[in-house]
Design a protein around this nucleic acid. Structure first.
Length: 299
DNA sequence: CAGGTGAGAAAAGATAGCGT
DNA sequence: ACGCTATCTTTTCTCACCTG
């Protein structure tokens, strides 16, 4: 079998920390991403819109990322541009967090926060992020990893030159999947939610990818997310973060425990509203202020 | 005693249903 | 329309209980 390789570098216009971006949350170990901690490299198999399969190997360089692309045949200019777009999207190279950095500069306890940190890795498409987020609900992380792994194994496409590493399934593939096949991936009741969304996207009835660049207010996007079956308040907040809106906080058991420990230690049980309020002063940066709160280390 | 089997419990949010 | 509560759902883990 033949294989072509080429490399390119991409740079962020504002401060950027590759390793921090990859390890800021669990996404880097959800298939088809893999993260090698020893070499600090991120790998991903990707299906480009024209159906081409590529393997992207990413490593950090000053202010950016070095990418090695493997493909069956040499890339055309448009395929190469597509690879660049995927990397820019996943690593949020175009996101400007300088206003957030200005905010944390006012707080001495944030002093050790790395310059260029604060980005959270995401998938090339919002569709993939939605499916993965649904797989995080009502379960624990180990099971989430298994669900996603099995979905990719069962419904992904395998590059001829790398048959052991499938791509993330397309909406079309998941829309056609049978209930039994989806449940065999360990999705349980989530199977119906995933297929419903996959079907709507595949049919063109639901243009979720536009939500990432939408100018709509966060409340409106939240409403749209909540209208999807399988997505409740927690999942909506997580997806807003993945879209790039940080003005909501993911109220789950982890959040509750952390906030009670950190802000209400030894006090009578606070109400949900009290707990939800504690990051209000951070405005549109609430999610990042919570997620990267320096007090996690003390807990 | 090694190796199944099976009932609960635990964990984690989504969601329907009620009151204000 | 908003804020709680109670209920629903699935998978895995735990531990007692059989069985050959």
């Amino acid at each position: 079998m033949s294989m072509a390789t080429e490399t390119f570098r991409l740079h962020a216009a504002t401060p950027f920390d590759f390793v921090h971006t990859c390890t800021a949350h669990g996404w880097a170990v959800l298939s088809p991403f893999t993260w090698d901690d020893a070499t600090q490299r991120l790998v991903r198999v990707e299906r480009l819109l024209d159906g081409t399969h590529v393997v992207l190997h990413m490593r950090g360089i000053p202010h950016g990322v070095h990418v090695t692309v493997e493909s069956a045949t040499p890339l055309t200019p448009s395929q190469r541009a597509a690879c660049e777009r995927v990397v820019r999207t996943c690593l949020r190279l175009d996101e400007d967090l300088r206003p957030f950095y200005a905010r944390i500069a006012e707080h001495p306890e944030w002093r050790s926060f790395p310059r260029g940190g604060g980005r959270l890795l995401r998938s090339p498409t919002l569709f993939e992020d939605i499916v993965k987020t649904i797989c995080t609900t009502n379960t624990r992380w180990a099971q989430t990893k298994r669900m996603v792994q099995r979905l990719v194994e069962a419904f992904g496409e395998r590059p001829t030159f790398a048959p052991h590493t499938p791509t993330f399934p397309t909406p079309q593939a998941l829309a056609q999947a049978s209930d039994e096949a989806l449940k065999a991936c360990g999705l349980g009741y989530r199977a119906a939610a995933v297929r419903e969304i996959a079907r709507a996207v595949a049919e063109g009835a639901l243009d979720i990818e536009a939500w990432r660049t939408s100018e709509a207010p966060t409340a409106e996007l939240r409403k749209r997310l909540l209208s999807l079956r399988g997505i409740g308040p927690y999942a909506a907040a997580t997806l807003l973060m993945l879209i790039g809106r940080y003005d909501e906080v993911p109220f789950d058991s982890i959040y509750r425990d952390f906030v009670v420990r950190t802000f209400f230690k030894g006090e009578p049980p606070p109400s949900k509203a009290d707990l939800q309020r504690v990051y209000d002063e951070w405005g549109e940066w609430k999610y990042l202020a919570y997620w990267f709160d320096p007090r996690w280390k003390d807990a």
